[in-house]
Design a protein around this nucleic acid. Structure first.
Lengths: 130, 130
DNA sequence: CTGGATCCGATTAGATACTG
DNA sequence: CAGTATCTAATCGGATCCAG
């Protein structure tokens, strides 16, 4: 086999990259990845770090990320059991991009708030109404 | 006013950045932004470029992005009417991150496929079953 | 502590029909 | 061409209960 394939095209709805994007383009997935960037976390540690996430969503998100090979799960047979989540090598190559995105949001929040306000005021002014 | 605020923290569920992330961490939003990176697109041009998107989702996504100030909408009073979408200056600062993410997915699709297969095979092997 | 299982309301997204 | 409006099926996500 030669090492040139990459027929992947994310704009093609039948390309498998679409499914991956759908799983990755998810609020909780991005926050979990960002959280694990610095250090491994236990389940409840993650839950406390990511305000507002429910146990169900956290579990679901962790399973998805584990299945895609982005994080790994290590069980310590303590009593009660301890489970630690950490980025896989593959996941580490992604988090740089992810944190870039979350940082961008924080950095540009003011600009977007202003844009939203302008947009909404234009709406009530009667511009888009029939 | 001093120029130091940024109390924004995306891990706080009451921070407005959460809402922005939720809108941005969306399959269609990322694809639209990526599409507009290179050049302005008309509505149906976008629809054809992003395979699988419905007219409803495209409209909805465009409105969200416009409200957040990431894209602008220009109407040409031709017959029939022509509408062109393009990135705003703010949106341009974001697309570099976005395209990084979509490119990452395409580049690492093989690794993730392998991880998924391994994960699923371990499942049927009886590891997670009771 | 780390989840799995379930119920259920709310939101989403696709399909379809219609308009300036 | 560029949408709006509506109906509905499917999914999501929160709450709750239970277990190793």
């Amino acid at each position: 086999m030669n090492n040139q394939q990459i027929p992947y095209n994310i704009y093609d709805d039948r390309c498998p990259t679409r499914d991956v994007l759908a799983r990755l383009a998810d609020k909780w997935a991005l926050l979990v990845l960002g959280c694990l960037e610095k250090e491994p976390h236990r389940f409840n540690h993650l839950r406390r770090s990511i305000r507002g996430i429910t146990q169900k969503m956290l579990t679901q998100t962790l399973r998805k990320l584990e299945r895609d090979g982005l994080i790994s799960r290590q069980i310590f047979p303590t009593v009660p059991v301890t489970v630690e989540y950490r980025l896989s090598p593959l996941g580490q190559t992604l988090t740089q991009t992810v944190s870039l995105l979350t940082l961008w949001v924080e950095d540009n929040m003011d600009a977007m708030s202003a844009a939203q306000q302008a947009y909404d005021e234009a709406s009530v002014a009667g511009l888009p109404v029939g």
